[in-house]
Nucleic acid binder design. Structure first.
Lengths: 143, 143
DNA sequence: CGGCATCCATTTTGATACTG
DNA sequence: CAGTATCAAAATGGATGCCG
């Protein structure tokens, strides 16, 4: 034990293996998968479907504000990573269905960890940010 | 049980509370804190310091490729959120020290979850992406 | 229906120079 | 030393229109 008291979890993700460099890359590669603007909304819809396939337009209508372009882009990215399965039916008019793969489902606990952190600390963070802005205004207004 | 077999974790982050909308916001608000390009590198350095304060230039030299501008921006953002403490010594030449706060340390298990997911599935994802690119080239080359 | 192509606005990032 | 200011480059996001 050292005398510097933060007392909590201490860098589990750093101790587990070879050092900060590998660690950066790993965290970053996970973020690259889930940090895009529409990644989470698309993900959540597919999760909510519980394995039922969803058609392109179903997803589009379920996610307010998304454009076809962005939805296409996001689905392609997830398909490329192997998180979703894209099934094309050779019919007219076209029919394409999307489902989460096993690999896709494996992200569920990760997203859960993010949601839980915000549930616990989100308000504190928002408060801090608000106060920080206040202080900046006060400091800027009276020099 | 339903007959559609994904068999794994099933939407823990959706069951815990009010629905997908709250869930989106929470996950997004956490991502807003950690998803910026330099957030993780800065974070990891502060974690590695184990509570020891780090000076601006120490951080800058420890993080290859970062510019002063980006480091300043990142540290300000983290300070605003209450994740780091910024201590200014009124001396010349200037001396400023940064440390993680308790709130900052609370992100450690979250980052750990991200690192662990990549440790488990990162190679599979990379493989999938490589194969996807191959397929795209093959399909484009022989129409 | 699903999706690609194009154009444009906004944001993010980087390089460089300057300062108390 | 620890920033700020300015400018340029690049990535991202949104709005349309067309097509099989």
């Amino acid at each position: 034990m050292d005398t510097i008291g933060h007392r909590g979890a201490s860098a589990a993700f750093l101790r587990e293996d070879l050092g900060p460099c590998t660690c950066h890359r790993r965290i970053r590669s996970t973020l690259d998968v889930i940090a895009n603007k529409w990644a989470v909304p698309v993900f959540v819809e597919l999760v909510r479907a519980k394995g039922e396939p969803l058609r392109f337009t179903q997803l589009a209508r379920a996610i307010p504000g998304i454009t076809q372009k962005e939805l296409t882009k996001q689905l392609r990215e997830m398909e490329a990573a192997g998180l979703v399965l894209r099934k094309v039916y050779p019919v007219v008019p076209p029919k394409v269905e999307y489902t989460l793969t096993q690999l896709g489902w494996s992200l569920d606990p990760v997203l859960d960890a993010l949601a839980r952190w915000a549930a616990t600390y989100g308000n504190v963070v928002a408060d801090n940010q608000a106060r920080f802005m206040e202080r900046r205004k006060a400091d800027g207004a009276a020099p």
